[in-house]
Simulated assay, not measured.
Amino acid sequence: MTLGAKRPDCGRTDLLGVGEPVDGAEQGPPAAARVGCNPAPATHSTRVVVPITAIVKPVRGQHPRLALGLATRAVDLTGWKPWGRTTPPAPAHPQSASTTAGARDEAKIRETWGDGRIGTLAVALSGERQSTVAWKSGAAGEAEVGRTLDAIASEHVVVFHDRRIPRSRANIDHIVITRAGVWVIDAKRYRNKRPRLQVEGGLFRPRTEKLIVGGDRTKLVDGVLLQVALVQDVVAPASVRGVLCFVDADWPLFGGSFTVRGIDVCWPRRLSRQLTALEGAVDVTAVAAAIAAHFPPA
């Protein structure tokens, strides 16, 4: 059986071979009749739904990995052409890093599987790259923490979101200035995973503290410590604390928040209560102006 065989009776291109039975199907009329193809080209249906076994069978021999993915999918080939996607290219516009990365991934897939139907199916079956999924998840976490912080903003509580670190591509998720000091907040979204403190060493070895969230995430602490140092240089002598705020984590009903290497680890609602309960003598207006001048919007 050949892929993309031309139907002489209706002028259509289908995945089914002429006269060949589909796995598990009874012998019957020709394949053209089975897919609803009328003899008259002007009246045939434009919707082509191909039994999945008709695709898996010819693919299985040469491309077993793709066949395995196809075996669990229902494929609607309406509007598909042998040369791939049929939609016209979108107008040129600035692309985000995730869009560019996705285009590179598709190019690599097509290098392996080609530009025909097999390549298009491989692109459709391939999931988003991990960095893209992580970016979307992180953005959702930032948005939720941002809404919680905006709810407590006042003349004594100034909130900044998404501030760029000079001479760097990195940014600070949130900065909050209160009378008690400055908080540098990094929002993270780890769904259904419980943050916990793991302490190692002690009597005969140096004591080390690790952040565990479904695995060792101590690098997150290192990142916040660096941001705290950068903000401290700008607002000294005002004190600066770092916070890792986890969204959608598996927090216990009682307790749960902790401090690792001087960085507070908590959830949005607890963070907002903590910020509004503190008092001090910091000049909120002056400190906010200094931060806004040094860390512009990203």
Rank of each mutant, 00 (worst) to 15 (best):
G262R: 07
E26Y: 03
L211Q: 06
T132L: 09
V182P: 10
G11T: 07
A25L: 08
D23Q: 08
V260C: 15
V265D: 10
I175T: 09
V49A: 11
I172Q: 07
P268L: 07
S257E: 15
D173Y: 04
Q95S: 13
I55Y: 07
L271F: 07
A31D: 03
C10Q: 06
L3V: 03
C245V: 12
P91Q: 11
T259W: 00
G61K: 13
P296H: 10
G202F: 10
L149P: 05
V157N: 04
E20M: 12
L125M: 14
R73I: 13
R65I: 08
S45I: 02
D150I: 01
P166V: 13
A5S: 02
G11W: 07
V231M: 04
G61S: 13
T53E: 15
R147H: 02
A139W: 01
L125C: 09
F204A: 11
D9V: 14
G17F: 08
R147F: 00
D9E: 14
G28E: 03
R269G: 11
A71C: 02
G127R: 07
S272C: 11
A107R: 13
A143R: 06
G255H: 10
A292D: 15
T276G: 10
K136L: 08
I172M: 10
V287N: 00
A139M: 05
R179G: 06
G17M: 06
L121S: 03
V133E: 13
V240F: 08
A170I: 00
L121K: 04
P30L: 12
S98V: 13
R167G: 04
P21A: 09
K81G: 05
A54V: 13
Q227A: 05
V265K: 11
